[in-house]
Design a protein around this nucleic acid. Structure first.
Lengths: 240, 240
DNA sequence: TCAAAAGTGTTTAGGATACACCCATGG
DNA sequence: CCATGGGTGTATCCTAAACACTTTTGA
């Protein structure tokens, strides 16, 4: 039986717990800020990868489900809970990890950057949001995992309105459009985008407008998850 | 180090090889025959699940990638190689396997039933194509895995022309339409389906017709993978 | 000559696309 | 009064969908 150290929230202490020894979880956490898609990376503080950047990840406890492990790790690493988190796939090349055979299960999350402060966990010396275009070389196969996630995100965002998880609760239509433009790498027509997105009836207009902008203030909208659930039940396509 | 028995093709003997001890692979193999979607199941010949039906699956060797393991297992179990095989996702509830903590990685394949004979492998006492609607209770969480695959297949089939993997090389448009109807559980309009599918330019008309049918013989078509590759490169949607 | 499926044609409604234009606001 | 983005309107083209119709062939 292998034991690893964890930070226990209830007691506030570092405890040891048994973990599965050939499987890890790695999380690709996407954010969106100032018109750019970003990913959360950590710098390893110890071990063979000390000083190198990596996707946040960790070990699966013996008694928890893998989904739970992903949620737990994300909470430990970012402070966030109850967010959009999805399994990507398992990565299992025999040589992906230099110290033995370890398969990792990739998860990805979309979060609202403004909702929380990031802070380096106890095996990380630093944690930073990287612009997708400026990601450095990462440890192991983490660049592969990231690229796969990105491809997956581009597909998923066209199937379901998951992009909203990257925006603040209240947003303008232009912000939403720019999010899609950034993720998909395409240009969209303002007028047509408005019509398309509003026709879907997924957005609620708020009785509120932008402030402190040096031009006509735009209406604010919010995404209505209940409406979305009703629409998905009878099959619903989200092409932009 | 844990060892398991394998059938070695080169020597024709049963050999022992080291495997990863907390991870398995399970395969959902879909087929299509006489208008019905089918799945390949095996009956366990030994162990705690003796006499029960299950998805074909097995252990991952220490030195092989998980994709390779899936391909190998599929070959051992069905005789088929080099076919459309995709990772689904990992299933990791802590209680999914009764004798310990084992995470399984699900794969699925679409194959042409007529292309090969199925035969029970050496830890299986029987192997059978089950109509999707008649699948019995399976071991562990295999029903969950199967249901997930089915949902996934229904989605995937709308994104990419993977359905062709289920049909014989030469097929009629009506057969193709019935395949989609069966998988998606919907009814399609013959005329509109023809137009839509032919406009995509994915099919090559053959200089051949159906034989031995008691009505007007239909033209035979085949799917052209090269054309498909060209089309996908510039983003290509496959809604039916 | 009938049944059954192959295959074609036509009409209509609604969405996609492109693009011109007016509106509101801060500087 | 101008720059900037917010927001609306419209003409054109294309496709989806519904459905009626003709053709071919074996029994």
């Amino acid at each position: 039986m292998i034991f690893k150290k964890f930070f226990d929230e209830e007691s506030g202490k570092i405890i040891e717990s048994s973990v599965m020894n050939a499987i890890t979880i790695d999380c690709v956490i996407f954010g969106f800020d100032k018109g750019s898609l970003k990913v959360l990376l950590i710098e390893h503080a110890e071990g063979i990868s000390k000083g190198k950047w990596a996707l946040p990840g960790g070990w699966i406890k013996e008694e928890e489900s893998i989904d739970h492990a992903a949620q737990r790790l994300l909470k430990e690493l970012t402070g966030l809970s109850n967010i959009y988190l999805e399994q990507l796939k398992a990565f299992g090349e025999p040589d992906r990890f230099p110290l033995g055979r370890v398969i990792t299960i990739g998860y990805y999350a979309l979060i609202k950057i403004d909702d929380f402060d990031i802070k380096a966990g106890f095996t990380a010396s630093d944690v930073k949001w990287y612009n997708i275009k400026d990601v450095p070389e990462l440890i192991y196969d983490h660049n592969t995992i990231l690229n796969y996630s990105l491809k997956h995100l581009r597909n998923r965002v066209k199937q379901a309105p998951i992009g909203f998880n990257l925006l603040p609760k209240k947003f303008t239509l232009l912000e939403l459009m720019q999010l899609y433009e950034e993720i998909l790498g395409i240009e969209l027509d303002k007028s047509n985008f408005r019509r398309k997105i509003l026709r879907m009836k997924l957005l609620q207009v708020l009785d509120e407008k932008q402030k402190d902008v040096s031009h006509r203030a735009a209406k604010l909208y919010r995404f209505d998850y209940d409406i979305y659930k009703k629409l998905t039940q009878k099959g619903f396509n989200f092409e932009v």
